[in-house]
C-alpha cells in the first residue's frame, strides 16, 4: 500500500510537470498580456514597462527556467491582473465551487441511482421508457439554456429563489460557505440543480447499464434461488456490482465539475474557480492559467487515487500493487 501511494505520488509529479510545460508553451501563444491588461491607448513605452514588470522581457526559454526554479520553491507566481499569488486566488474561489459541485453530485446520485436501478430492473415498463427519454433530454439540454430558464421561472416569474450570487455566508476557517444559512441555501439551489441535471442523466444511464448487465449474471439468479426478496436482490446484490464502473465516471465527473463548472458559475454569477480560469484566459493572466491547470491535473490524479482506493472497498477482486 505504501509502495502504491509512493508510486502514485511520483506519477502525479510527472503528470503535473508535463502539464505545466505544455500549458507554459500554450500560454506563450496566447495574446500579449501587456496589451490585454493595459488600456488600448497605452503607449509602447507603457507596454514595455508592463512587460518588464511581468517578467516577460526575457526569452521564453529564460522565462521557463525561472518558472521551474520558482515552482520548485513553491512559488507559482503572482497574477498579472490582481498582483496576488495565483494559488491564493484559486483557493479563495474553491469553496464556492466545491459547494455547488458537492451538492449537485449529491442531488444527482440521490435521484439517479434509485431511478437507474428501477429502469435497469424493469426495462420495458412505460415508466422506465419515460424516465429514459427524459434523461436523454437532460443530457442534450444545454446547461446555459437550462440555467436561464430556471432563473426566469423561479426568480423572475415566481420570485421564490434568488437568481444569482451566494447570499449570506458563514465564514468557517476562512472559507465562505453558503450552505449554513437559509439565505445561502436558497442561493445554492438553482446552480446546484443546473449542474446536477446532466450529471443525473449520465449517472442514471450508467447505473441502468450496469444494472442490466449485472442482472443477467448467474449470481443474481442464485440469490433469487436462495429466496432473497426482489428488493434485496436489486439493492443488496446487484447495485454494488453495478456501481463499480460508475465510480470511475463519478470521480472524473466530479473533478470535471470542480474545474470546469464555468458555464453554470457564469450564469448564476457564482464566484467559483471555473470563472477565474476563463477570465484569466481572456486576459492572458499566465500565472493563474498555469497554476490552475496544474492544480486541475493534480486534482484528477488525486481523484483517480481515491477512485482506486474506493475500488478496493467495493470490489474485493482488485488489489493495489
Amino acid at each position: 500500500m505504501l509502495f502504491y501511494v509512493i508510486k502514485r505520488f511520483i506519477q502525479m509529479i510527472i503528470v503535473i510537470a508535463i502539464v505545466a510545460t505544455i500549458v507554459f508553451i500554450f500560454v506563450n501563444m496566447l495574446g500579449d498580456p501587456a496589451v490585454l491588461l493595459l488600456p488600448p491607448e497605452a503607449s509602447p513605452e507603457e507596454l514595455a514597462k508592463a512587460r518588464a514588470a511581468m517578467g516577460l522581457d526575457s526569452s521564453p526559454w529564460e522565462q521557463y527556467k525561472l518558472f521551474v526554479v520558482n515552482v520548485i520553491h513553491g512559488d507559482l507566481g503572482n497574477s498579472f491582473v490582481f498582483r496576488e499569488p495565483a494559488m491564493k486566488l484559486i483557493f479563495e474561489r474553491m469553496p464556492a465551487t466545491l459547494e455547488i459541485v458537492v451538492l449537485a453530485m449529491f442531488i444527482a446520485a440521490l435521484i439517479a441511482i434509485p431511478l437507474g436501478v428501477y429502469v435497469g430492473a424493469h426495462p420495458n415498463t412505460f415508466a422506465s421508457r419515460s424516465i429514459l427519454s427524459l434523461s436523454l433530454l437532460c443530457i442534450s439540454m444545454p446547461t446555459f439554456w437550462f440555467g436561464i430558464v430556471l432563473i426566469l421561472v423561479f426568480s423572475v416569474q415566481l420570485g421564490w429563489l434568488p437568481s444569482s450570487g451566494r447570499g449570506d455566508v458563514v465564514i468557517v476557517w476562512g472559507m465562505r460557505l453558503s450552505f449554513l444559512t437559509w439565505d445561502g441555501i436558497k442561493h445554492l439551489i438553482l446552480p446546484a440543480i443546473t449542474l446536477a441535471v446532466q450529471q443525473l442523466a449520465t449517472q442514471l444511464r450508467l447505473t441502468r447499464a450496469g444494472m442490466m448487465e449485472v442482472l443477467r449474471q448467474d449470481y443474481i439468479k442464485f440469490a433469487k434461488a436462495k429466496g432473497v426478496s426482489p428488493h434485496d436482490v436489486l439493492y443488496g446484490h446487484a447495485l454494488k456490482n453495478a456501481l463499480i464502473p460508475v465510480i470511475t465516471v463519478y470521480g472524473l465527473e466530479f473533478g470535471g465539475l470542480v474545474v470546469f463548472a464555468t458555464i453554470t458559475e457564469t450564469i448564476f454569477a457564482w464566484p467559483g474557480m471555473g470563472k477565474l480560469l476563463i477570465d484569466s484566459i481572456n486576459i492572458s493572466d499566465r500565472p493563474v492559467i498555469i497554476a490552475y491547470l496544474m492544480l486541475a491535473s493534480m486534482l484528477f490524479v488525486v481523484i483517480n487515487f481515491i477512485v482506486d482506493i474506493l475500488y478496493t472497498v467495493v470490489d474485493p477482486r482488485i488489489d493495489l500493487r
Binding site: 491588461l37 488600456p39 497605452a42 508592463a50 518588464a52 514588470a53 498579472f80
Partner: peptide, 8 residues
C-alpha cells in the same frame, strides 16, 4: 510608476 495601466 504603474505598470498595469495607471500611467496613461
Amino acid at each position: 510608476d504603474s505598470t498595469t495601466g495607471g500611467a496613461g
